[in-house]
Amino acid sequence: MKNEPLYQQIKNKIKEQIQSGKLRVGDRVPSEKELTEKFHVSQITTKNALAGLAEEGIVERIKGKGTFVCESSLTTSIRQPNKPKGLIGLILPSMKTRIEQEFVNNIEKYVSQTGHNLIIKITRESQFEEADAIEMFREMDVKGMIIFPTEKETYNDAVLRLTLDKFPFVLIDRYMENILTYSVTSENEAGTYEAISYLINKGHKNIGLISPIITNTVTHERARGFENAFLKRKTTINKNLWLTLSFNEIAQSKTPKLIRDFLLNKPEMTAVFTMNAELALYTHLAISSLKKEIGRKIELLTFDPLGISGISFIKQDIAECSKKTVELLLEQIEGTYKPKRIYVPVELKISESVEILETIIT
């Protein structure tokens, strides 16, 4: 109401966001400063609004961290309701990496907000399991599927059939290059281009690449970004510094030794870029195993955080990828079928104390 005090109007706006599900239990509420800028009011007004919500038990104010939606009669009433709208199937190759776990967490959050329930099937990198999961979900009459394809050279025929049937589904992380489907992926090419440009600008000329065999859209785009960083500077690329590993060579029992041998045989290499965090970990292990030998420095940079301080990486926006994926799936469930490919920006995160891994190479 226009006659209400300004702080009360702001309180009501925040309550509306909670009631609509836009803000859920545990979510951070905009700060006093953010609300001041948004509503063009004084900070005293926004402070009173948040204080009022806290008094009603709707939010909790934590000093030094912010204001968060907490369990209350308001939030409890939101989550009870209506009968679930149906099931959404999520198929992914594993849940062993932090990235995959983040995808599951965010996808479940956004699916839940639509009123659907999420069920998950892990394929363990098997296309047979992937096909069985698709068939199982169809028999369960799911409303739609989100598929994180297995890391193989070709796409599953079962995925192609979903396309032909116009069954609601979205591919996440990669897409089918010659077949138009709904898909959401990160800006792999642009992110890799920025990362390699950063290394070149630092003076690195001999930059290695460690990658799975380059067969799918993710590896193709990242390889292209690597190449373009050199081509746009009219600098020669030494592809003898590229190590591509077959899928059965990527394992903790094999990969570190393969990378170690590769590094020993490339004494000119001063930096290395890995396609993903798993290969970055194996590269880090390989480099560490060489520390006692006489040699040189190698800078490691990777796609996705490795979880080891001092190593720079390209950060994907998993929350935005997940949100866009659910939005595209809902669009199909509601009757619209206009396949599209969405690219979500990434960010190069340079460590404040870049760890130059010292390796002694004979």
Rank of each mutant, 00 (worst) to 15 (best):
E153K: 14
R161L: 11
E139G: 06
I147Y: 07
G115H: 12
V111Q: 07
K166F: 04
T163P: 05
V142R: 05
V159H: 00
T181A: 06
D165S: 03
A133W: 00
Q113N: 15
Y182M: 11
K121C: 14
L180D: 13
F128N: 14
S126W: 08
M136C: 13
V170E: 03
N156K: 05
E151G: 03
E139M: 12
F148I: 13
L164N: 14
F148E: 00
Y175V: 06
Q127G: 09
F148C: 09
K152W: 03
E151P: 01
M176D: 08
Y182T: 09
I146H: 07
N117D: 13
M140W: 13
L118E: 02
I120N: 05
L164R: 15
R161C: 06
T154V: 10
T114V: 09
K166C: 07
F169Q: 07
S112F: 14
T154W: 04
N117V: 12
Y175A: 03
A158Y: 02
L162M: 10
K166V: 03
S183Q: 09
D157T: 08
K143I: 05
V170A: 03
E177P: 01
F148M: 14
K121D: 12
L118A: 12
R138K: 15
S126I: 02
S126A: 09
M176E: 11
K121V: 13
Q113P: 01
T123R: 06
F167W: 03
Y110D: 15
K166Y: 03
E177Q: 14
E153P: 03
Y175F: 14
I134M: 02
T114L: 11
E177M: 09
M145V: 10
I147S: 04
T163C: 09
P149R: 11
I179T: 13
E125H: 11
G115D: 04
M145Y: 07
R138Y: 02
E135M: 08
L180I: 07
T150K: 06
D132W: 00
M145H: 10
Q113W: 01
L164E: 15
E125P: 12
M145C: 05
M136K: 08
E130A: 04
D173W: 04
A133H: 00
G144C: 11
P149E: 07
E139V: 05
S112N: 14
N178E: 08
T150R: 02
F128T: 15
D141E: 14
T123M: 09
E177I: 02
D165E: 14
F137G: 03
L171C: 04
I146S: 06
G115A: 10
I134C: 02
K121H: 13
V111R: 07
T163M: 07
K166D: 11
N117K: 14
Y175M: 05
F128H: 13
H116I: 02
V159L: 12
Q127T: 11
E130W: 06
Y110F: 15
P168N: 05
Y110S: 09
V142S: 05
I146W: 01
T114H: 03
L160Q: 11
R161W: 02
N117S: 12
V111M: 09
R138G: 04
M176R: 08
